[in-house]
Write a protein that binds this DNA or RNA. Structure first.
Lengths: 150, 150
DNA sequence: ATTGTAATTGAGACTCATTATCAATTAAAC
DNA sequence: GTTTAATTGATAATGAGTCTCAATTACAAT
């Protein structure tokens, strides 16, 4: 796994500005977070970190995830009955999701039309929109086939 | 508060089909649910029911909310750090929400363009979409003013 | 390098929403 | 009315996430 010094810089600057420290625990969590491609939840991240031999407690994982959200390196995707799902946002353009009811898989997509629509809608309502999340639920290709077979 | 016999019929039929019973607890919870206009969470509903003098335990409230979701009379709006938020869907057309970061208030809106956009997006991805949720976060009129004053 | 000091860590206690348990109750079919 | 399986509710259990606090440590100043 290649180093990602840019992200370390972003994070350590963010911390320094607030008089906070860039510890090895935070560094390990940052690294594992940034090496992840898809969605993840704190517990899974914690287990991966332990497996990788790094030392960081569950508490630190939660605390660091919080910080990473604040400085914009990751963001919350959604809350589920099994906990909160996050994803890397650094080097990962804004997008929305389609979520398969059948298998839980997620498709990412981006739509310029949607971005413009958000602006229109906000104008109509006198609302100052900053971000949005669109989640489309349904069936992915695979699960559509499975359904036909039954 | 007027009676809403249609919803009772829907619910009791739904239950009968599944060999389940239409108890007074379920009836009380249904009624309180249907008399609500905005968003609500299970705990608030439970407290209201107790205040109204009806008898239903917290456990029954949770269990019945689950049933009401299954039969389509209410639906989950979102999960927050303070629990799950629901809203009546019976006699309440589909819509999406703008959520104020400042005060937590919610604006409901409906957009035909958005509905058509969902269809387009799904076609593009070979996804069979059934429902969606669009949540736009930002500042409502009041909170925009407050921010200016500071 | 050493020191001083405030930030951080981690183990475990705690919170709070939600679910499971199970004996007692009850709807509703006969 | 009897029967019987579904339901209820008090309470225990679960599980994600947060808090506590003594021990540790980053880091700025000397």
């Amino acid at each position: 796994m290649r180093e990602k010094p840019v992200q370390k810089q972003v994070f350590s600057r963010f911390l320094k500005e607030r008089g906070q420290r860039f510890t090895k625990e935070r560094s390990a969590i940052l690294e594992k977070t940034m090496s992840r491609n898809g969605h993840f939840d704190p517990e899974t991240l914690y287990i991966e970190i332990r497996k990788a031999g790094a030392k960081a407690s569950r508490a630190s994982v939660y605390r660091t995830i919080s910080l990473l959200c604040e400085c914009g390196l990751i963001e919350q995707v959604r809350k589920t009955e099994h906990g909160t799902v996050y994803e890397r946002s650094f080097g990962h353009e804004h997008h929305d999701h389609m979520l398969c009811i059948g298998c839980g898989s997620a498709i990412e997509f981006y739509s310029d039309k949607l971005e413009r629509l958000q602006e229109d809608l906000c104008r109509q309502q006198g609302f100052q929109g900053t971000t949005h999340t669109l989640e489309i639920r349904g069936y992915c290709r695979k699960c559509q086939k499975k359904k036909k077979q039954t």
